[in-house]
């Protein structure tokens, strides 16, 4: 329950690239081939550990269709990390990355960590986008890159955790203003300054205003 930080993520990308499946694999460790399509936005959360710190990831899974773009845009603000997903078996989803990235940069805070994800890497036979292309795109735009498979769970954990690691590092470097919640980072209740004062033996119940 108690955590040191809460990071807010957003998952974006074209429709049908496997955003919801990635989330489901990460939060529930299962793959659901038949999945109702996402309308608007859905949520998931999981606790991870980075450098012995408990970190809660709050993940906002968005709908991919252009029609819902106006909704998706309103969720960029207040996200610390974004997973930009494309489908390696459909070139068009890769071609649309630029649009997505522009959208993300425009509507998010500048320090948001963006990870580029080429999903469905289990379908090697139907591959349309080479791994090198993804890497090049990531390098060009300053993103972290990874190929994943929500079906086999390959690299799924890593994608989420590496992003969190990056955010955590940025916090340590002071890039993120952790007191501004618009950055998508919340300090957990156990870090609040008054916890030492509290003699009631319950450290989670601080009276400081740092976490609200």
């Amino acid at each position: 329950m108690s955590y040191a930080y809460l990071f807010k993520y957003i998952i974006i990308g074209d429709t049908g690239v496997g955003k919801s499946c990635l989330l489901l694999q990460f939060t529930d460790k299962r793959f659901q081939p038949i999945h109702d399509l996402t309308i608007g936005v859905e949520f998931g959360a999981r606790m991870i550990t980075i450098q012995n710190k408990q970190i809660k990831l709050q993940i906002w899974d968005t709908a991919g269709q252009e029609t819902f773009r106006s909704i998706t845009r309103s969720y960029y603000r207040g996200a610390a990390g974004a997973l930009l997903v494309y489908d390696i078996t459909r070139r068009e989803t890769f071609n649309h990355l630029t649009t997505w990235l522009e959208d993300a940069r425009q509507h998010s805070n500048s320090s948001m960590v963006i990870m580029l994800i080429g999903n469905k890497c289990d379908l090697e036979s139907r591959r349309e986008v080479r791994r090198e292309e993804g890497e090049a795109f990531a390098r060009e735009h300053g993103l972290i890159f990874m190929e994943t498979s929500a079906k086999t769970a390959a690299n799924v954990e890593e994608a989420f955790i590496n992003t969190a690691q990056e955010i955590y590092d940025k916090i340590q470097e002071g890039v993120f203003d952790i007191n501004n919640e618009a950055n998508g980072i919340k300090i957990g209740p156990q870090l609040s300054p008054s916890s030492q004062k509290s003699s009631s033996g319950n450290p989670a119940l601080g009276t400081g205003g740092g976490c609200c």
Partner: peptide, 18 residues
């Protein structure tokens, strides 16, 4: 007051404190 602060869940005690 102390008792409330010490026993309530976080959000609540924060609100109370506020």
């Amino acid at each position: 007051h102390d008792h409330i602060i010490a026993t309530l869940p976080t959000e609540m005690s924060l609100y109370y404190q506020k």
